[in-house]
C-alpha cells in the first residue's frame, strides 16, 4: 500500500512521509475491520492471471468494438445462469468483476451459488469460456476446482 502511495505521489518523498503512516494505518484498520482472514494471493498465480487478463481484455475490447462498429451489429445477447465452483466471497467478487471485463460476458447478478451472466453473443462455447476464467481466478488464490461440466448457451 505504501508503494502505491509512492506511485500516486509520483515519487515525492515529502508526500511519502505523510502517506506511509497513513497507508499503514489504513491497512491495519481494514485488517481489523475484516472478520474473515483474507485469502492469500499467490505471486506466481498473480503473474499468470495478469497475462491472461491483459490478453483477454484486449480481445474483449476488440470484440465489442467490432460488434458495435459493424453496420450489421452481430449480437445475440442472452442471460445465462452459471453454477459457481469458487469458494469464498473475495474470490467470487474478483471473478465477477473479471468476467465483466472479458469478451462477451457481463456479470449481472451474484446469487448464493450461481452467477447470472449476460452474454453478448450466444454463439460460441460461452460457458466453457467462463469456466476457464473461473479456473484462472482459482489459480490466483491457489484453489483447485473440479472441472466444469460445460454446456451450451
Amino acid at each position: 500500500m505504501t508503494a502505491i502511495w509512492w506511485a500516486i505521489s509520483e515519487g515525492d518523498t515529502a508526500a511519502l512521509a505523510v502517506g506511509a503512516p497513513a497507508a499503514l494505518a489504513a491497512a491495519l484498520i481494514s485488517l481489523a475491520l475484516h472478520p474473515d482472514p483474507l485469502p492469500v494471493v499467490r505471486p506466481l498465480g498473480l503473474l499468470r492471471f495478469a497475462g491472461f487478463f491483459l490478453v483477454h481484455s484486449v480481445r474483449g475490447g476488440i470484440d465489442v468494438a467490432l460488434r458495435a462498429l459493424k453496420p450489421s451489429m452481430p449480437i445475440d445477447p442472452r442471460i445465462i445462469t452459471y453454477d459457481l465452483r469458487l469458494p469464498g466471497n473475495t474470490a467470487r467478487v474478483v471473478f465477477t468483476n473479471t468476467l465483466s471485463l472479458l469478451p462477451g460476458t457481463l456479470s449481472a447478478k451474484l446469487g448464493r451459488d450461481t452467477l447470472e451472466v449476460h452474454v453478448l453473443d450466444c454463439a460460441g462455447e460461452v460457458t466453457a469460456e467462463i469456466a476457464r476464467v473461473e479456473d484462472r481466478v482459482a489459480d490466483l488464490f491457489g484453489v483447485r476446482l473440479a472441472p466444469h461440466a460445460g454446456g451450451a448457451c
Binding site: P77, L102, L120
Partner: peptide, 16 residues
C-alpha cells in the same frame, strides 16, 4: 438495451 451497452462501456472504453 442496458446490458449490451454495459458491455460496450466496460470493455471498449477501459481498453481505450
Amino acid at each position: 438495451d442496458v446490458y449490451t451497452r454495459l458491455h460496450a462501456l466496460t470493455k471498449a472504453d477501459n481498453l481505450g
